[in-house]
Structures are given as structure tokens and as C-alpha cells.
Design a protein around this nucleic acid. Structure first.
Length: 330
DNA sequence: AAACCGGGGTC
DNA sequence: GACCCAGGTTT
């Protein structure tokens, strides 16, 4: 399938046109001015499900607070979680912290360079491993993110709305299409093109440097005009089915972390107090209320986002952000 | 394969 | 209010 797909496209021309476009239109971003794997890792994790514009200021702040892997590894987790706000997906902060600790304790603050070893870091998946190998260590490895998947899936694969389920085939295609001497600019360019031109819902084919090569362009443009493209439009999967936010489990998890985040360092909250900060009508004596909150807190504790201290004499457990200082060995 | 995980910006 | 977003892990 992949071989067949590439046979239809002038890959060299695609490479040339994308690299030229990137040289002219690529954005100047701080994580493109460094090859420090720690900085690259930070950027990649922040950019998971978070747009560039929103990650940008936090990236700078975070590096100012934790300039080196050792600084991050040695920081209390509570501080790392505080600094993450308000990016969301707080588990990313925990994972980042753990990776830094692993690098500090087992590798003298160095990062592994091979794809395989990078993948062994918990919280580093195929995309992030590829990005670090390529962006920090200059390796010619292929990888997919949502933008690359869409650009390559459309241009080379003729798929208007490529899904993650097709990643096996698309990664093979990406490996064939990779210009090994310019893997860095190739990937950065694919991501910029996906973010600025080859948009998911309304691709700007008129501005696309790859329009002449793109196998999906006829399908996408037919979709613009009505009638003809209806069948294609119906193939478009919903972006992400998200439950209504206020009142959801997700919402209250976020509220719990937010409530603990603003606590003076060293303080913690009883379940009763925490519950009332989430919902004024909360009562610990109400069994349903208490069960609900305990379940939420237990989930957060399992992920390392909160700490539960049950050693208090009376009044039940108290909740805080995890604050135990971290020992690093060098 | 699908569900889960936040939050803010845009239209 | 719907749509969008440089993923990874768990079930």
C-alpha cells in the first residue's frame, strides 16, 4: 500500500517544495534554537494537545524556574505542578518530572539517544522519542504527530482525514519519504504546514506549496463546493468526543488540583474543606458526597498528582500536592 | 479500538 | 456552543 502510494507521487519534488517553504515561512521558535534534549523534551511534552501560542510563554517560564535537568529532578513535585498551570493535562507535569528524575539518577542527567532507549522512558511514546532523536540528536528517524499524519496522509496517501488507526501504514510511508539529510527541517516543516495551511477542517490548498503534488486535494476541494463532497465530509471523524465540561469528572479533577495549587507551601486540606471548595453544598457526612470525593482524590493520588496523608490523629486524611523533596545522586 | 486526561482560544 | 489542539497510557 505504501509503496503503491509513493509510486504515484514525485517524492523528491515534495521534499524540495516543503523544505523551500519551511525555509521561507517556518516560525522562529525558542525550541528550534536549541539542541538540548531537555529543552526539546520540555517543548514536546508541552505541545502535546496544547497550541504553540499558549505553550510559548510557559516554556520560557518553566526553563527559568528549572534551567537544567538536575534542577527539575530536584524540585518538589508540587512546585512542578504549580508551574504547569494553566496548561492542563497535569499528568504531563508528573511524567516530565519523573523523566528528569530518571535521567538524573540513572544517567547522570543525560538523555539516551536511541529510539529504543528513549521509548523506555515512561511517558515518552513513539512521537516524542522520534522528535528527541531527530531534533536533539540529529537522527534521520521518521515519526508522526497529528499534523504530520494529516499532511503526509493527504499528500502522499490520498486520505482526506487520516486517522491514528492508519499510523502503521503512514509511518512506513513517512520513512520512505524522509529526506535523510534534512530530517530536522522536514519534520518541523511538516508540522508548520499542518498547523498553518493543511488545516484539518478547512485546508488552504490555494496557499499550499504541495498542492501540485497532493493526492487528496481533488477530494478536499470537491468538499468545499457542496453536493459532490458530501460523502467525503461524512467521512470526517468528529475531532474528539468530549463530555460536557462543567460538572464532569474531568472538571472536578482540574478543580481539585487548582485548589491545592494555591495553598501555601506545606499546607494541606481535609476532605471536608476540599469538598466545600469544589461545591458549597458538600458535606462529608453525606455518604454519596464523601464517596465521590474520595474516588476523585484516589484517582489523582494514583497518578502522582496529589498526596494523601492519613497519619493525622483525628479528622481523617489530609490532601495536598505531593511535596516530598527529591534526592538526586549527583 | 476506545476511553481517559484540561484548558484556553477561536469563530 | 461547537470546534480545535507537536500524545500517551490504560482498559
Amino acid at each position: 500500500m505504501a509503496l503503491l502510494a509513493l509510486a504515484c507521487v514525485d517524492v523528491r519534488a515534495v521534499q524540495r517544495d516543503l523544505l523551500a517553504w519551511y525555509a521561507a515561512h517556518g516560525r522562529d521558535l525558542p525550541w528550534r534554537r536549541t539542541r538540548d534534549p531537555y529543552h526539546i523534551l520540555l517543548a514536546e511534552v508541552m505541545l502535546q494537545q496544547t497550541q504553540v501560542e499558549r505553550a510559548l510563554p510557559k516554556y520560557r517560564e518553566f526553563l527559568q524556574a528549572f534551567p537544567t535537568v538536575a534542577d527539575l529532578a530536584g524540585a518538589p513535585r508540587a512546585e512542578v505542578i504549580r508551574r504547569w498551570s494553566p496548561l492542563g493535562y497535569n499528568l504531563r507535569a508528573v511524567r516530565l518530572h519523573r523523566i528528569a528524575q530518571q535521567a538524573a539518577q540513572e544517567r547522570a542527567c543525560r538523555f539516551p539517544e536511541s529510539l529504543e532507549e528513549l521509548l523506555s522512558l515512561k511517558g515518552v511514546g513513539r512521537y516524542t522519542a522520534g522528535a528527541i532523536a531527530c531534533f536533539a540528536f540529529g537522527q534521520p528517524v521518521a515519526f508522526l504527530d497529528t499534523n504530520i499524519r494529516r499532511v503526509l496522509g493527504r499528500c502522499l496517501g490520498s486520505i482526506p482525514y487520516p486517522a491514528a488507526s492508519q499510523d502503521r501504514a503512514l509511518l512506513a510511508l513517512a520513512e520512505e519519504a524522509l529526506p535523510r539529510e534534512q530530517a530536522y527541517a522536514w519534520h518541523q516543516g511538516l508540522m508548520d504546514l499542518g498547523a498553518a495551511v493543511c488545516l484539518r477542517a478547512r485546508p488552504r490548498c490555494g496557499e499550499c506549496p504541495l498542492a501540485a503534488h497532493c493526492r487528496a486535494r481533488p477530494l478536499l476541494e470537491a468538499e468545499e463546493g457542496e453536493g459532490v463532497g458530501r460523502s467525503v465530509r461524512e467521512e470526517r471523524p468528529p475531532y474528539r468526543v468530549q463530555p460536557r465540561y462543567p460538572g464532569s469528572r474531568r472538571y472536578y479533577r482540574g478543580r481539585i488540583v487548582a485548589a491545592l495549587r494555591v495553598l501555601p507551601s506545606g499546607e494541606s486540606l481535609s476532605l471536608e474543606t476540599l469538598g466545600r471548595r469544589l461545591r458549597p453544598e458538600f458535606t462529608a457526612e453525606h455518604t454519596e458526597d464523601a464517596k465521590w470525593l474520595r474516588a476523585l482524590v484516589a484517582g489523582l493520588a494514583r497518578e502522582g498528582l496529589v498526596a494523601v496523608d492519613s497519619s493525622e490523629e483525628r479528622g481523617g486524611p489530609t490532601i495536598s500536592l505531593p511535596r516530598e523533596p527529591v534526592r538526586i545522586s549527583s
